[in-house]
Computed example of a mutant assay.
Amino acid sequence: MFALDSEHTLRSIRIGDGAALARAYAANREHLAPWEPMRPAEFFTPSWQEDDVKSCVEDAASARNARFVIESSDGVIFGRMNLNNIVRGAFRSADLGYWIDHTRQGRGLASRGVEALVAYARDALSLHRLQAATLVHNGASQRVLSVNGFGRIGLAPRYLRIAGEWQDHVLFQRLLDDDVSSREERP
């Protein structure tokens, strides 16, 4: 668990989070619609979310993904952060994704959450690299990545089907080994 501020923590998704996630997604349905794939109505139900939570927990146990929620001190979920498609071997990489509740934006939660996941990916998972993709017009998310040391590596035409259309994305990466070597060189 990582403290993001005095009232929000970042913690792993756990069994029983389905109802709270359904409430969070329902409260942010319009806010997230331009940034995510089109969602069927059942996506917003506690049963669908709890089934997804079970998959998330299984994926974490097998080290395929590491998924987290941003939770307030009273147990309300206000966002998600994910390390998806974790690959070991010579690649040692993962994809980073996140969203923040529309009522919590502008408070630095995304930036601090990404900072925590960078440290987790480097220190707990021993990854070499994180990649993230944003819609071309998502300046806020691009600023979060930039603040956290991610560099732009290219443009991926028609990368993901978002809001019902194949849309271009800007790709970013952060090499985590650089963090380790710079720490080792300090006196």
Rank of each mutant, 00 (worst) to 15 (best):
H137P: 11
E42V: 03
E185C: 12
R104H: 15
L4I: 01
L155K: 10
Q142W: 04
D59P: 03
V180P: 08
P157D: 06
L21N: 03
Y159V: 01
R80G: 12
S181M: 11
G18M: 02
M1R: 12
A124R: 15
R14W: 06
V136L: 08
V170C: 07
S12L: 14
S146L: 12
I77Y: 07
A63T: 09
A41T: 02
F44W: 02
P46W: 01
N85E: 15
A19K: 11
R92E: 12
E165V: 00
E50F: 02
A26Y: 13
R23K: 15
D178G: 14
A124L: 10
E50T: 01
R67I: 04
I13L: 06
A140C: 02
Q142I: 00
N138F: 00
N82S: 13
L155F: 09
W48C: 01
F2L: 05
V147I: 13
G16L: 01
L160T: 02
V118Y: 08
D52E: 14
S126G: 14
A94N: 07
N28F: 00
G151N: 14
L175S: 11
A24P: 11
A133E: 07
L175N: 14
D17K: 00
S93G: 12
L125M: 11
A63I: 05
V114A: 09
S62K: 08
R92M: 09
N85R: 13
A19Y: 05
V118L: 09
A116D: 09
D168M: 02
H128W: 13
D95K: 10
F43C: 01
A3K: 11
R29F: 06
L176D: 09
L127V: 10
R29A: 12
S141C: 05
F172E: 05
T45D: 07
N65G: 02
A19D: 14
L10Q: 05
F150K: 03
S73K: 12
S62E: 12
E7S: 13
E30D: 15
I100Q: 06
V69T: 08
S72Y: 03
S73F: 06
A41Q: 04
Y159T: 02
D178K: 04
R186T: 13
E71T: 07
G97I: 02
Q49V: 03
F44S: 02
A27P: 07
E30Q: 14
Y25W: 15
W166I: 00
A3E: 15
G139K: 04
L155I: 10
L145I: 06
A132N: 10
I100R: 05
G149E: 10
G97P: 10
V180K: 08
A33T: 04
E42S: 03
G154K: 05
L135T: 00
L130M: 09
V136S: 05
A27L: 07
L155S: 09
G164N: 05
G139Y: 08
N84E: 12
S47A: 13
G106H: 05
E7D: 14
P34K: 01
S181C: 07
W166F: 13
V180N: 08
S47C: 02
A63M: 12
V69M: 00
P40H: 03
P46A: 04
V144P: 10
P40W: 02
E7W: 04
A119W: 11
